[in-house]
Amino acid sequence: MCSQNCLSHTTGEKQIRKWIEPMRTQFRKLEEYYAVFLASLKSSMHYKTDIALSLIFRISTALLLIFVWTVIFASSGANSLNGLTLPFVYAYFFLVAAMSLFISSEVHITMQDDIREGTIASSLVRPVNYITQLVLNSFGDMFIFIIFIGIPILIIGLLLAHVSVSPTTALLFVGEIILGNIFLFILMFLIGMAAIYFTHIWGLSWVAYAVIGLLGGAVLPLNFYPSAVQNIIFLTPMPMVFYTPISTLLGTISMQSAANSMIVTLLWIIPFAALVSYLWNRARKNITSAGG
């Protein structure tokens, strides 16, 4: 045991501690985040068959769309449609298949169960913010899928279109994905929060998926829409979920429009996040979590 003396400090030491203490606190937080992430990651590894089946499913959806587009190109007789050649369309839908992993994150379903069954209690006994836990859990759940499904499909897509990716483009792509996913998370969180009032949110989430699919460019590359519609869509953060990152990687949009799109998304995210966090702080007072 340490005696009273060795616990006191000189003024200089105190000054240093004053600097170190916040850093230590940050480090402690990182350890907590790492633990939450790791536990989700380990949990997801138990679903090996799920990972394999998911790979097959995603490739087959991409193949299905590719068949459709091959027929469209053949019947039109053109070499390129709206500036996209057939190999690029192939690549586009492979990339959609890879990116749709992010859509499959189940933040809203977790929230629905947490609120409806009262399992939120087991998250709230931990000294970590609930929202942080949700983010880390969904990232931990997705991680293995990204490594074993997302990246291979992405590489297949790039090989199909014979695209070589510069480090700058890759970096931009990653940045866009992060932005798009922040938006996606806030949106899904908002839907999950609705469970406090509606209990079931399946219907709501399917509407959201349909909207994201249509406006985000998962169903059809956005440059196939009439320009008036495009103008409106590009004022929303939706393209950041599929279209903008994919087009950036394939080199079919300019750096300038990619940057514009990122700014638009940022301008949406900040007030949207503030609003949702305000709503959450009000709404969580209404969680009843009966039974248990």
Binding site: A35, V36, L38, A39, K42, H46, G118, T119, V128
Partner: peptide, 20 residues
């Protein structure tokens, strides 16, 4: 409502608690 991660052995949850 258990604290345990269902897919993991209990020791992993204990380790989780150690970090957290």
């Amino acid at each position: 409502h258990s604290q345990l991660y269902w897919n993991l052995p209990a020791i992993d949850t204990f380790e989780f608690m150690r970090h957290i």
